[in-house]
Design a protein around this nucleic acid. Structure first.
Length: 103
DNA sequence: GCACTGACCGGTC
DNA sequence: AGACCGGCCAGTG
């Protein structure tokens, strides 16, 4: 049994390019619905966005949520990465109906 | 083991 | 649409 962090990172890495997932869906995929806060902890602590594409994780309402470092700065980069993957980003929000990846 | 924290969520105002 | 509130969960001191 891996740690919660390991599970989160693994699932996050499974999100294909051009799609996104929510903290809620992620927690559900791990088998702990309602552990979205913990999921956020894992992503912020991973400290390795290189091997873990945390920019593909957004909030359930479509807002980007957060990212490492300063809010705006991190968000800015996140938006850029998402757009690069072919995801339409409108004012820090995305269309979950189109880009939400289900496990 | 208790208390506080946080890249959250859903509902309400 | 933006702001507030209470509730959940794992990590940390």
């Amino acid at each position: 049994m891996k740690t919660f962090f390991e599970q989160v990172m693994e699932q996050t890495g499974r999100v294909p390019r051009g799609k996104v997932t929510t903290y809620s869906e992620l927690s559900r995929a791990i088998g702990k619905p309602g552990a979205q806060r913990a999921v956020g902890q894992a992503l912020k602590c991973n400290g390795r966005p290189v091997i873990i594409p945390c920019h593909r994780v957004v909030r359930s309402d479509g807002s980007l949520g957060g990212y490492g470092g300063a809010k705006e700065s991190g968000i800015r980069k996140k938006v850029r990465l998402l757009r690069k993957e072919g995801i339409e980003v409108r004012n820090r929000k995305i269309d979950l109906k189109k880009y939400l990846h289900r496990f």
